[in-house]
Design a protein around this nucleic acid. Structure first.
Lengths: 133, 133
DNA sequence: CTTGACCTTCCAGTAACTAGAAGGATTAAA
DNA sequence: TTTAATCCTTCTAGTTACTGGAAGGTCAAG
């Protein structure tokens, strides 16, 4: 299959598929005209990559997942710990974003938001509180 | 003040401060020996940038915030809408991360996580469900 | 035989830094 | 005074995961 077809099947843009080849995630064959030629197995790998990326795994993690997937002797515990680690990372990120959001929401609430030039948001970012304690 | 001092005051690494100069966020003077020389105002700007970045504003948004901060005629509503937009963006990101997290948690729960080679996580990522409907 | 839709490679850009090399300036100690 | 440590300078390149675009080869249809 040509790259356009592989793209449709896997849901990844052609550019991305070529990029994945560049970084040695996949190695399709070549047709006599020089075009990349994707096997069923290649399409499968691309789809796998697409889903893993959507789940938030980095490229390097995907590389590991692929090798685990292809390793008939690997234990499922390796994969499970990878997944649980990722969950912890995501939780941390969510906590950070939540506190950022709360801060911004508070600032926006305090701001009258009209044409007056004084603005509590900017004042607080700048560290100038003109209403001390 | 030298860059090292500016770094301590603002909490930004020297590298970052030089980078901010590269992209025209700040323009410190120069001492006779060629060293960058930061004024009180410069330190203030750097601290402002540090906090705004921590609040999740992009560099370009920081540039806008700085110009709004220095514009005596701007209305607080401009800043408020910027902040509220940012809140909405953050909420979207949190929702995405939450659904990623739920998916991964479910997969990890389904995984026995021992030495047996079959692994529901990899199977699901690959799209091979061996327990149909 | 030309047109258009494919495909190829290669180069550059994105965001926001960070690391490191090579070398000059300053300061304190020996 | 020399030397060593610590600053500072510029410049290049690497990071992550692509994305856009240019210049050009291939293929199928009319």
């Amino acid at each position: 299959m040509n790259i356009g077809f592989a793209s449709k099947q896997s849901g990844l843009p052609s550019k991305t598929i070529r990029y994945y080849e560049d970084i040695d995630l996949i190695k399709p064959g070549r047709a006599s005209n020089g075009y990349r030629d994707y096997s069923e197995q290649d399409i499968h790998s691309l789809t796998f990559l697409h889903r893993a990326r959507d789940l938030g795994f980095s490229i390097e993690e995907c590389r590991l997942l692929m090798s685990l997937y292809n390793d008939k002797n690997r234990s499922s515990s390796e994969v499970k710990s990878l997944a649980l680690n990722k969950v912890a990372t995501i939780e941390k990120k969510i906590a950070e974003l939540t506190s950022m959001k709360e801060m911004l929401t508070r600032l926006a609430t305090d701001c009258h938001g009209d044409n007056r030039p004084d603005c509590p948001i900017l004042d607080e970012i700048a560290g100038e509180r003109n209403t001390p304690t």
